[in-house]
Simulated assay, not measured.
Amino acid sequence: MKKFICTVLTLAMVVGSLAGCGSSSSKETTAASGAATEVATEAAQTEAAAATGDFDTSKEISVNSREDGSGTRGAFIELFGVEEKAADGTKVDNTTVEANITNSTSVMMTSVAGDPYAIGYISLGSLNDTVKAVKIDGAEATTDNVANGTYKVARPFNIVTKDGLSDVAKDFVDYIMSAEGQDIIEQNGYIKIDQNAAAYAGSKPEGKIVVAGSSSVSPVMEKLKEAYLAVNTNADIEIQTSDSTTGVTSTQEGICDIGMASRDLKDTETGVTATTIAQDGIAVIVNNENPVENLTSDQVKSIFTGETTVWADVQ
């Protein structure tokens, strides 16, 4: 590339010399010189683009957020300060109105994977190589860093129940909190809540269990379901994936036996009890073509509130 640019610049000098000698018309000389300069400029731009992987930092940031009611959104906006208290004490979600709203973890990942200029957030346990997790304040998004407190963007995974739980639902909860259940949680990229849990010693009762709620919790719940049904063939488990708020209200209304919530209960969510089964980090994700490797917490907040709108401002 450098040799090409030098050749083009030499051509421009030759054209300029010819102009001085009067060997061609002024208009022809000017046009030739301009063309040479344009080629040199384009060549330099091409070389610069190659150095950054053709990522155009002047492009607008495509912000992707989860829907209202999502536990991941609730935890994200709280942890990054996107949610703030108004003068009257009410909480205000300042997520930019320009954000693309996705209704599940899988849709979020697909959206970011398909747009070089996109940014979003997902459960750390759901992260795969279709997208890239950026460091936050210099800390890599890993389960070890969540466990040791280095990576601070983390939240609980809760199951929600109310009084009158059936024997088989109680037994499934016991399995989740057992050594076997906690190991499954850890094996799937989450942080177990009890390092010294006792082995499962359930009675293997018969019956159906309906579990409903958070799309962040449901992947690991599917793994727990599979393992539990292997030891208790008398049980039948149905998992309905939606969001944390639906998981809580469905439990309150008796629509499901166990709710899933990727956040703590709100003060207004009464009549049910939350039990933390795991800890999970929230990964801030970008497209694999994006050269950005690290963002500060303030930069993330600025992006998701709409204050920062182009990638050049976060380089």
Score class of each variant (00 low, 15 high):
Val92Ser: 08
Ala49Val: 07
Lys162Cys: 03
Ser250Asp: 15
Ile119Glu: 10
Lys266Cys: 02
Thr308Met: 00
Met108His: 11
Met260Asn: 03
Asp243Glu: 04
Thr102Leu: 03
Ala199Ser: 15
Glu28Phe: 14
Ala227Cys: 12
Glu98Phe: 10
Arg155Thr: 14
Ile277Val: 14
Ala44Asn: 00
Ile193Asp: 07
Ser24Leu: 14
Val153Leu: 15
Asp243Ser: 11
Asn158Leu: 04
Ile237Ser: 06
Ala48Pro: 08
Gly271Pro: 07
Asp93Cys: 04
Glu289Ala: 12
Ala86Tyr: 00
Thr268Phe: 01
Ala197Lys: 09
Thr96Ala: 02
Ile191Gly: 06
Val107Glu: 10
Thr275Pro: 08
Ile176Arg: 00
Thr305Arg: 06
Val310Glu: 11
Ser242Thr: 08
Ala169Lys: 03
Ala199Asp: 14
Thr90Ala: 12
Ala261Asp: 04
Gly149Val: 12
Lys85Asn: 09
Lys162Arg: 15
Ala179Thr: 10
Ser24Arg: 11
Thr142Asn: 13
Tyr117Phe: 13
Ala40Arg: 06
Thr90Asp: 08
Ile237Ala: 13
Thr150Glu: 06
Ala31Trp: 10
Tyr190Pro: 01
Val300Arg: 07
Thr270Gly: 06
Glu83Arg: 05
Ser24Val: 13
Val134Gly: 03
Ser244Glu: 02
Gly189Val: 00
Thr72Asn: 04
Gly202Met: 05
Met1His: 15
Thr46Glu: 15
Phe304Trp: 09
Ala212Glu: 12
Glu226Met: 12
Gly247Val: 05
Thr142Pro: 02
Thr246Glu: 06
Ser250Trp: 13
Val173Trp: 02
Thr90Lys: 09
Glu98Lys: 14
Gly71Phe: 04
Gly34Trp: 08
Thr305Phe: 08
Ala36Met: 08
Ala43Thr: 09
Ala35His: 02
Gly69Asn: 06
Gly164Asn: 13
Phe4Tyr: 08
Ile282Arg: 11
Ser178His: 10
Glu60His: 12
Thr130Phe: 07
Tyr228Met: 07
Ser218Trp: 06
Glu186Thr: 12
Val168Asp: 03
Ala43Pro: 00
Ile5Lys: 09
Ile282Gly: 09
Gly34Thr: 15
Met1Ser: 15
Cys21Ala: 12
Ser62Ala: 11
Asp174Val: 03
Thr270Asn: 11
Thr96Ser: 11
Gln279Tyr: 14
Thr90Phe: 01
Gly281Met: 04
Gln315Pro: 07
Ala212Asp: 05
Ile122Phe: 03
Tyr200Phe: 13
Gly125Lys: 05
Thr251Trp: 07
Thr143Asn: 10
Lys208Gly: 10
Thr52Gly: 00
Asn196Gln: 07
Gly69Arg: 00
Asp174Trp: 01
Ala51Glu: 10
Glu47Phe: 07
Pro156Thr: 08
Thr37Ser: 14
Leu224Pro: 09
Ile303Thr: 02
Gly20Asn: 15
Gly164Ser: 12
Asp243Ala: 03
Phe157Asn: 12
Ala31Asp: 13
Asp183Lys: 15
Thr161Pro: 04
Gly22Thr: 13
Ala261Glu: 03
Thr251Val: 14
Cys6Gly: 11
Thr305Ile: 05
Leu9Tyr: 09
Asp236His: 02
